[in-house]
Design a protein around this nucleic acid. Structure first.
Lengths: 144, 144
DNA sequence: CGAGAATGAGTTGTGCACAATTGAATTGTG
DNA sequence: CACAATTCAATTGTGCACAACTCATTCTCG
């Protein structure tokens, strides 16, 4: 019998699968909004507070400019955000919502409920899962 | 105060972050083996049993031929697998390990422990997290 | 003040994820 | 048997993730 690591025993694969399944549930809902999942994450951050520099967005989401620059360019193309060089620090690019970007927040209200409906977990289980994931992510990131 | 959904409250984002953090922990270890994370997953399946058709690999991993075909071509380029048309059903392509692919299993033994070390969770917490993720993934996938 | 280090955003290149399509092989059904 | 429907793998096209690099701006410290 082989002693190779088994796919189904790996927490790593469980995370990978769960994350893919969650974005798959979101995909059709977000498609109605004209957004991909990472674009939705950026909009979430901006709905909480704007303007935000590319660097700040990256810090919130764990993404670098290599990912964010073209993504923001697409959001700008959709007319949801605008980018402009900061006056105080001309290295920075501040991202702000357009009226259309702000307005989209209303239609995004129902998105998270979709996952809760599909999850089939009790609120307690959801809460505990969320807490465990938070601990795990913090520990993993601090180990790098 | 805004009633927009908040980034940090979303289980979805917790999953996304945890999954990215886990693959980031694996990345340097897998780099020593010359593999990316999805390539490692394919090797895991093959170490358990071979040959496997592209379709079977996809069913195990939740990936389609659009992802697997080029990935397998790269694994073949690395000399770890070979692909050949099935005799019984010429639509199928069977993937088999080369000697080098089989041998790599030994060096992959230590990979999963790396995540456990970095996770900072007790075995009980790991087990419960694993179980919750399994339930969640199953529920999400069945809701599609 | 001025030279070198650090920072912020962008670009390039590689690889994964997924939708949509193609084309060959097989299966099912009349 | 014939032929329509299905299955399987591959390809194309779009977008994300990340490493490595470039370049301008800002900071630091002698």
């Amino acid at each position: 019998m082989s002693d190779a690591p088994r796919l189904r025993h790996q927490v790593c694969f469980a995370l990978y699968s769960a994350s893919k399944a969650a974005t798959a549930v979101y995909r059709p809902v977000l498609e109605d909004l004209g957004l991909t999942y990472p674009q939705y994450l950026v909009m979430l951050v901006l709905w909480e507070q704007e303007p935000r520099s590319v660097r700040e967005l990256g810090a919130e989401l764990g993404l670098d400019s290599g990912t964010l620059s073209p993504l923001l360019k697409r959001l700008e193309g959709l007319g949801l955000v605008e980018r402009r060089r900061s006056d105080e620090d001309e290295r920075r690019v501040d991202v702000v919502l357009t009226d259309a970007g702000t307005a989209l927040s209303d239609r995004a209200q129902a998105v998270p409920q979709r996952l809760a409906d599909a999850a089939g977990l009790s609120p307690e289980e959801i809460g505990q899962l969320h807490a465990s994931l938070g601990k795990l992510t913090a520990a993993l990131n601090s180990s790098l």
